[in-house]
């Protein structure tokens, strides 16, 4: 069951198109998995449309007439004129780890070809870097059963979307589809007890800051793990 959703404000700004690229991707991918948020976005979009298109200024009619006449000379779009990127035939839907295929939410499929190789980290943890193409550091992270990330806080912000499985972090228990936002106010230690482990997609804008025990020794190197 999905318990953690983007805020209403984030959903509304997503509908408006005013979120940053990182936030937009994360909210959109969450919506792919969450019917409730899809509905919120749909009704927000409807409200915004009604609101935004309510007012206008009546000038400019000669320029509009020229525009109208040039548009109506355009041919109708042919169904075949669209590049195949969105038609799904050659698009990859899944990423693979150790022979297991994980089906990605629609929004994240654009990153399949931009995902690097899996590498093993501390504590039964696997990570595959993703080249976003815009500011932000993204990874697919897979926690094997019993896998854990040492307790850490965040210097910037961290968005995590649970793609498959469950994990706990000492604060909450998260399930597939959950949307998790963390910043400098949060300290947590993710750990998965799910039999099949847990795959998440995570974006941070600053390296993590480890807070406890020996893991503090990792701090000078944390940019090497989560970059």
């Amino acid at each position: 069951m999905i318990k953690f959703h983007p805020s209403l404000e984030q959903l509304s700004e997503f509908a408006e198109g005013s979120l940053s690229s990182v936030e937009a991707i994360m909210v959109s991918a969450h919506c792919d998995m969450c019917e409730r948020c899809q509905q919120v976005v749909a009704s927000e979009t409807e409200r915004l449309a009604e609101d935004v298109l309510d007012s206008f200024d009546a000038r400019q009619s000669s320029e509009f007439e020229r525009m109208l006449s040039s548009i109506t000379q355009l041919p109708p779009s042919d169904k075949s004129d669209r590049p195949s990127r969105t038609t799904g035939s050659c698009e990859k839907f899944t990423i693979e780890l150790d022979g297991r295929q994980f089906v990605l939410p629609r929004t994240l499929r654009r990153f399949v070809d931009k995902t690097g190789n899996w590498s093993s980290l501390v504590g039964r943890l696997w990570q595959a870097p993703v080249d976003l193409g815009f500011p932000g550091v993204a990874n697919f992270i897979y926690m094997e059963r019993g896998g854990s990330v040492p307790e850490h806080t965040h210097r910037g912000t961290e968005y995590t979307l649970v793609l498959d499985g469950e994990f706990r972090d000492g604060i909450n228990a998260y399930d597939t589809g959950d949307f998790i936002y963390m910043d400098g106010d949060h300290t947590h230690a993710p750990k998965s007890e799910a039999t099949k482990g847990c795959l998440v997609f995570s974006v941070v804008d600053q390296p993590l800051h480890f807070t406890s025990g020996l893991a503090r020794l990792l701090n000078p190197f944390s940019h090497m793990f989560f970059r």
Binding site: D54, S55, F56, D57, Q60
Partner: peptide
């Protein structure tokens, strides 16, 4: 719609 879109 055109004048409304312009305003937006």
């Amino acid at each position: 719609f055109a004048p409304r879109l312009r305003s937006y």
